[in-house]
Design a protein around this nucleic acid. Structure first.
Length: 231
DNA sequence: GCGACAG
DNA sequence: ATCTTGTCGC
């Protein structure tokens, strides 16, 4: 069951209170169905601007063909605050989600799942609100530490925070810095790692979030030289 | 008080 | 995240 939507017009202090309230709703469990589609979500924006471009790209598995793409333009008043990323990015991402014709079996976010100070990174937060399976695949660490990784693709090391494993540092390609995978909601860590590896091609980032990143930057640039001067 | 700090 | 080109290394 999904909780009743909460306000997004909050102060950082109120946002933390919301996280404390929602953390208890996160469900880490094995996926129930086979995964045939997976989507990636991301946002982009111009420096110093409140306009944000959010996008979601749905891919098929195991072929990784793009089934659908949704990109929207919105605004975000909430500033970037470490630990409160979802309050800046989730609203616009949820708008894009509503416009999707084909809901994916799993949604991958560019950020943390439970590898968060209050165990409610953007992937877990959105997962709980949508009551949908989500995975967090971040490019850097928010909390936790891990041991050294072997240089080969596929090597991993547990990401530990305050004595508990919250995710894994995963080397997706040989000799590249690792990505940090943590379950968001309605999935377990092993399945999350498996899906990330199944969606990696020739880049460090898995295709879902990589394609979403390309999409939002594309619409941002297009929107820029369609309005701004330059003509 | 000091250091850390997703995007 | 965004601002930016070429360049060193596997």
């Amino acid at each position: 069951m999904s909780p009743s939507p909460h306000s997004w017009d909050l102060t950082p202090r109120e946002a933390i209170a919301v996280q404390q309230q929602l953390r208890g709703l996160v469900r880490l469990e094995p996926l129930r169905q086979e995964i045939n589609t997976i989507a990636g979500a991301d946002i982009s924006f111009n420096k110093f601007s409140e306009v944000v471009y959010a996008g979601i790209v749905v891919l098929s598995l195991p072929d990784l063909r793009i089934i659908e793409s949704v990109g929207i333009r919105s605004t975000s008043k909430f500033p970037y605050v470490s630990g409160l990323l979802s309050f800046r990015e989730a609203p616009s991402l949820l708008e894009a989600w509503e416009k999707l014709q084909t809901k994916p079996d799993v949604l991958m976010l560019d950020g943390q799942g439970i590898a968060h100070p209050r165990r409610l990174g953007i992937a877990s937060h959105i997962g709980v609100l949508l009551d949908w399976p989500t995975i967090g695949c971040a490019k850097s660490i928010l909390v936790g530490r891990h041991g050294e990784l072997a240089p080969e693709a596929g090597s991993r090391s547990p990401l530990i925070d305050r004595g508990e494993q919250v995710g894994v540092a995963l080397r997706t390609k040989k000799n590249v810095s690792p990505v940090y995978v943590s379950p968001g909601h309605l999935i377990d860590l092993d399945s999350a790692v498996d899906l990330v590896l199944r969606t990696v091609t020739r880049y460090r980032q898995p295709e879902p979030t990589r394609q979403a990143h390309l999409l939002v930057n594309q619409i941002r640039v297009a929107d820029n030289d369609e309005r701004g001067n330059e003509t």
